[in-house]
Structures are given as structure tokens and as C-alpha cells.
């Protein structure tokens, strides 16, 4: 027999999403990105479950996906609190900032080959300060790209 249409495709898509999420969890250092990747893994699971449910023609997979959604929400709530706390302590969202579990006589692992910052810091538009109108060079004003 052949399985129901698209079941295998759904499983493959689920596997791909799961694997991508796993790679992200393992490789990315940003705590929030890590959690995004975890959610991605959950998505992969959800797709697989639905595919299996389609294969078997029952509701188990659907129900499980609903619970996955629930657990993901819980996880996000708690994990984000932890992330915020971690950020409050270290000032960064770096998973490598937490190394207390290492051997006591090992040096701290630090990034040795940090790249030179070639990307300019993101520029956000700023409002001019309120108060006395600053003296503005009118010629310069004319040359501004955006107002």
C-alpha cells in the first residue's frame, strides 16, 4: 500500500525543520535565537505529528500538537524571564557568559578571533532635542536626505 498523499513529504519537512532548529540550538550563541530555534524544533515536531495523524486517520497527532502549543507558550514565558534575568546580570544575551560549571582550574573560554566590526552600528532616526531652536546651517539643511 502507499501511504496517504503528502504524508512522507510532511515528515520530511518536519525532519528538516527539526534538524535546522537543532543546529541553531547548538550553534547560535544568542539566548533568544536559541529559543527561537527551540520553537523551530517544536514546529518540526508539530508538522510530523500532523503528518502521522493524517496517515493514521485519527486525532492523536492533532491533540498532541495542541499540547505542544501549550507547552511552548509556557516555555516561552518562563524562558524569557530567565533570559531577562541573565541579561540583567551580565548585560548580554550570550550563552557563553555562563561558564561557572567548568573545571575550576580551567581558564575561561573567550572568543579569541573576534572579527573587526565592519558593520556600522545600526542607526536609528533621532528627534531633535526640544527647547530653543538650534542654530541650523541652512545649506546643510538643504543637503539632508530625509527630513
Amino acid at each position: 500500500m502507499t501511504p496517504a498523499p503528502l504524508v512522507l513529504d510532511g515528515l520530511v519537512v518536519g525532519a528538516i525543520l527539526f534538524s535546522l532548529g537543532l543546529v541553531g540550538i547548538l550553534a547560535r550563541r544568542n539566548l533568544i535565537v536559541m529559543f527561537l530555534c527551540a520553537e523551530l524544533m517544536l514546529q518540526g515536531i508539530s508538522v510530523s505529528l500532523v503528518a502521522w495523524s493524517r496517515h493514521h486517520g485519527d486525532w492523536g497527532g492533532h491533540v498532541l500538537v495542541i499540547f505542544v502549543l501549550t507547552v511552548a507558550a509556557c516555555e516561552a514565558a518562563v524562558a524569557l524571564v530567565f533570559v531577562l534575568q541573565a541579561f540583567a546580570r551580565t548585560g548580554r544575551l550570550d550563552s557563553a557568559a555562563w561558564q561557572s560549571l567548568r573545571e575550576s582550574n580551567l581558564p575561561r573560554t573567550v572568543d579569541h578571533e573576534l572579527p573587526a566590526v565592519d558593520v556600522l552600528p545600526l542607526k536609528f532616526p533621532k528627534l531633535t532635542p526640544a527647547g530653543v531652536e538650534p542654530s541650523v546651517d541652512q545649506d546643510a539643511l538643504l543637503e539632508r536626505e530625509h527630513v
Partner: peptide, 28 residues
């Protein structure tokens, strides 16, 4: 709330990228 200004250094490097990628691909 938490992101620092600009691109943080830890966003620009990965933890064991090769091994992670291979592990993920093998799993796939």
C-alpha cells in the same frame, strides 16, 4: 528590552559551527 546597541559580538560567532552543522545534517 535586552538587545544591546548594534550587532553584539556573540551574534557574529557560533559555538562549534562545523560540528553542529554536521550533527544536524546527519540527523536529517
Amino acid at each position: 528590552l535586552a538587545a544591546p546597541a548594534g550587532l553584539a559580538p556573540y551574534d557574529r560567532v557560533s559555538n562549534e559551527p562545523l560540528l553542529s552543522a554536521v550533527a544536524g545534517a546527519v540527523l536529517l
